[in-house]
Design a protein around this nucleic acid. Structure first.
Lengths: 244, 244
DNA sequence: TTCTTATAGTGGTACTGTGCAACTTAACAA
DNA sequence: TTGTTAAGTTGCACAGTACCACTATAAGAA
């Protein structure tokens, strides 16, 4: 048995992977699902200089109390906001994923109303930008294995949108049912049937009407807000579209 | 900005959490869902001496190529077998969860036919035993935050059993539909209706009949095996029991 | 004023997968 | 032959979704 193996050692292993947290931050801008990426600094001493990557970085063992706290901190640093929804996607770790050595990352994804935030390039990133999500990722090469991570986050998001109220967290506090329907369509990348959608959302108690409407030039639309602003609703069934 | 923060540092952080992988290994024994636990050595130098814990331990950066490979290795060491199903539950990390310092763990769960394996106490564990799963965990105190980890694994397992064929991985290669139904009932902790269950399983193409039956004294039962021995099937809907 | 247009919202029927209860079938044993 | 028991089937009810057609409400044009 290898000397670094196991909880039974009197001491801790001296060779440890380094540990990072990455966050895929999603928003809806210009009627598209977009993800926030940061450009890595163009220093030859850095891996993947100048390439775009998911926001994230090393755990700070003196500043962060937990993984999730670390994710929330990184999110706040980039957006200046507290995201209404944050979920862990999973973790990845291997000898090969970072040229600097054995590394692990803990991946989270966040949803937020894109109009509510300010982008903050910050000290450790050359630039910050929203990128449209096309298919399972974005156009262009990403640093490290971030294309794979992003694909996993997008897949998780789309899967859960089939049976939860997650897209509501992409909207501002007050919204109409057509707004919400559109958010579903943008994330899923396919049309959603109006009548069934409304029945589903109202029957599940996702939203409650406020006593105001939105005037748009045509028939005004009832405004709603979330019944529960922190927890998503789970619908009894997924969508079941006939034609694909 | 803290000196250990960020990918932008020329160097890597010197203070790193230590990294472990834990595996919740589930099986069905004596008509009960059980989980494999190891007893920690009774050395005063070890945290939680003598307590039971999920099998797992430190990543071995020289032996393990990836997190999942590490999980498979730990699984093989304890059971001497390759589990037909392994899935990551998630990761946890904090300053407080291990008295030795900031630590992270990557939690997996595995399903296997309990009769197919040999328990291997091994060098780094005083004992290995199956423990019945009662509610969200096991009777008795576990080391570290393993009660929370086990609860998360059990919750994930039960949730997926509602809409997948996962319990099939708890059975031997050949089984009858009543066997499979019983596995669902054991994991879910509630009865499952025979007729709807059979329709569901057969319509989804989970199994294929072999041309043999099992004689039990009463009417013989058709034997089946999995159509796909590696991937679970996702049913179009969850169970929808009327009375709870 | 009326007509047109566009979006919001409703109603009605079909369909699918599940729940449930009653039934039939196959083997064994008394 | 009959009774027992577990395996397997049949038929109907039900809930939630899909789809299509319809009505409602505002603004602006005619």
């Amino acid at each position: 048995m290898s000397p670094t193996d196991g909880q039974d050692l009197p001491g801790l292993p001296t060779q440890r992977p380094f540990v990072t947290v990455d966050v895929a931050i999603f928003g809806v801008l210009q009627d598209e699902l977009q993800v926030l990426l940061v450009q890595r600094p163009s220093l030859a001493t850095e891996p993947y200089p100048g390439l775009w990557a998911l926001p994230g970085g090393f755990i700070d063992v003196s500043a962060d109390d937990s993984l999730e706290a670390c994710a929330r901190r990184k999110l706040a640093v980039k957006t200046g906001a507290v995201a209404p929804y944050l979920e862990q996607v999973g973790s990845w770790g291997s000898k090969a994923r970072d040229p600097r050595g054995w590394s692990t990352t803990h991946l989270y994804f966040a949803l937020l109303p894109a109009d509510s935030i300010q982008l903050v390039p910050g000290a450790n990133a050359a630039d910050v930008r929203w990128w449209p999500v096309a298919g399972a990722g974005v156009r262009g090469r990403l640093a490290f294995d971030h294309a794979k991570l992003l694909a996993a986050a997008v897949e998780r998001l789309r899967a859960k949108v089939e049976y939860t109220s997650l897209p509501a967290f992409l909207l501002p506090r007050e919204f109409t049912l057509p707004d919400l329907q559109r958010a579903y369509e943008i994330v899923l990348g396919r049309p959603v049937e109006k009548s069934a959608f409304r029945t589903r959302v109202l029957a599940a108690g996702v939203v409650e009407p406020i006593d105001r409407q939105r005037q748009t030039g045509k028939r005004p639309a009832q405004l709603y807000r979330l019944a529960s602003r922190s927890e998503p609703i789970y619908f009894p069934r997924t969508f079941e579209p006939k034609r694909d």
